[in-house]
C-alpha cells in the first residue's frame, strides 16, 4: 500500500534522507522509529506530497505522492507532528472546514470519535490544552475512514488513559484492514500496535524488524528490591548480569532469558520488582554499533 523506493532528499546543510526503501502492506501497521531529527517527518512529508524527492519515489496505493498528491490524500488520514490549527475558530468549526474541504457528508464517524475521546469540540482553539488539540487532530485524521493512516508522533500530549484509548482505536482500524504508519521516538509507544518496525537514523534506514523479534531481543533492566543488604550481596554474586546496584536494590539486565531469571530470583527474599525500559538510543545501540563497525555511511561520527 505504501511504497518508498530509493527516496532521497538532500537539504542544504548535508542533512536529509538517503536512499530509503521500505514497503507497508495493506492492513499492516508499520512503526517508524528514530531519534529526533533522524528524518522521520521528512519521510512523512514526502508521503503527504509536501516535499518533492531529489531522487526516488514515494507511492501510496500505486499513485505518486508528489505528482498525484491530491488524489493520494483522498485515501489518507494524516496527523501532523506539529499541532497548528487555524486562528479564531473552535474545534467543531475546524472539523467542519476539513470535512467540507473533503466533501464529507456524514458526521456519524466524527461524532462517535468525539464521544470516545470525550472533549468539548466547541472550545475555541486558542483555549485548548495540548492534549485536547491532539484529540481534535486525531478526529480530523480518522473521521473520513481513510484506507491509510499516517500518524506523526500521535500519542504525544495524551494522558495514559487516552493513550490506551488510542491504542484500542488503532487496533480496531487494523482489524478493518487499514494500513497504518506511525512514527515515534519511543519503542513503547508503538510496540503494542505495530507489526513491523523500521529504524531510521541520520536519514538512513538502518534496520527493519518484526516487532516480536525486537521485543525478544530488547534488553530490559529488572530492578529487584531485596529484604536486606546481605540478600542483595548474595544476588549480586549469583551470576546474573548485574547492571547497577544501590543499597538493597539490584538492577539486572535481561534479554530474553526470563525463565532463568525468575528461577534464580525464587531463592531470594524480594520486597519489590520494577521494570525499567530503555530509551531508544539504548534499545538500538545494537544497530548503531553494528552500523559503525560496518564502516557504512554513518561510520564517522
Amino acid at each position: 500500500m505504501i511504497q518508498v523506493t530509493g527516496l532521497e532528499k538532500r537539504f542544504g546543510n548535508g542533512r536529509g534522507i538517503f536512499d530509503l526503501n521500505f514497503q507497508v502492506k495493506q492492513g499492516e501497521v508499520y512503526g517508524y522509529l528514530g531519534p529526533n531529527g533522524a528524518g522521520k517527518s521528512t519521510t512523512i512529508r514526502h508521503l503527504m506530497g509536501f516535499l518533492k524527492p531529489s531522487r526516488g519515489h514515494a507511492r501510496i496505493g500505486g499513485l505518486d505522492c508528489w505528482r498525484d498528491a491530491a488524489e493520494v490524500q483522498k485515501k489518507v488520514g494524516y496527523l501532523p507532528g506539529e499541532i497548528a490549527f487555524l486562528d479564531g475558530i473552535n474545534g467543531a468549526e475546524f472539523l467542519d472546514l476539513l470535512a467540507g474541504m473533503r466533501g464529507l457528508k456524514s458526521k456519524a464517524r466524527r461524532e462517535e470519535l468525539i464521544e470516545r475521546f470525550q472533549f468539548d469540540s466547541k472550545t475555541p482553539i486558542r483555549k485548548m490544552s495540548k492534549g485536547m488539540k491532539q484529540k481534535v487532530g486525531l478526529v480530523a485524521a480518522f473521521m473520513h475512514d481513510p484506507a491509510v493512516l499516517i500518524l506523526d508522533e500521535p500519542t504525544s500530549g495524551l494522558d495514559p488513559l487516552m493513550q490506551k484509548l488510542f491504542v484500542e482505536l488503532l487496533l480496531e482500524e487494523k482489524e478493518k484492514g487499514t494500513t497504518i504508519l506511525i512514527s515515534s521516538h519511543m519503542f513503547q509507544e508503538i510496540e503494542r500496535t505495530a507489526d513491523r518496525v523500521g529504524i531510521i537514523k541520520d536519514g538512513v534506514l538502518i534496520a527493519e524488524e518484526n516487532v516480536h523479534d525486537l521485543q525478544a531481543r530488547q534488553k530490559r533492566i529488572i530492578e529487584v528490591t531485596l529484604a536486606s543488604a546481605a540478600e542483595a550481596d548474595r544476588l549480586a554474586q549469583s551470576g546474573l548480569a548485574v547492571a547497577d546496584r544501590h543499597g538493597n536494590r539490584v538492577g539486572i539486565a535481561v534479554q530474553g532469558e526470563y525463565q532463568h531469571l525468575f528461577q534464580t530470583l525464587g531463592g531470594y527474599a524480594i520486597t519489590g520488582v520494577d521494570v525499567r525500559t530503555l530509551d531508544l538510543e539504548e534499545l538500538f545501540m545494537h544497530y548503531y554499533d553494528r552500523n559503525d563497525h560496518m564502516g557504512g555511511k554513518e561510520g564517522v561520527r
Binding site: 503527504m48 509536501f50 491530491a70 488524489e71 490524500q73 483522498k74 506539529e82 497548528a84 476539513l98 473533503r102
Partner: peptide
Amino acid sequence: SYLLATSVS
C-alpha cells in the same frame, strides 16, 4: 498541512 491533507489540491 491540515488544509493540504484534505485532498484539495
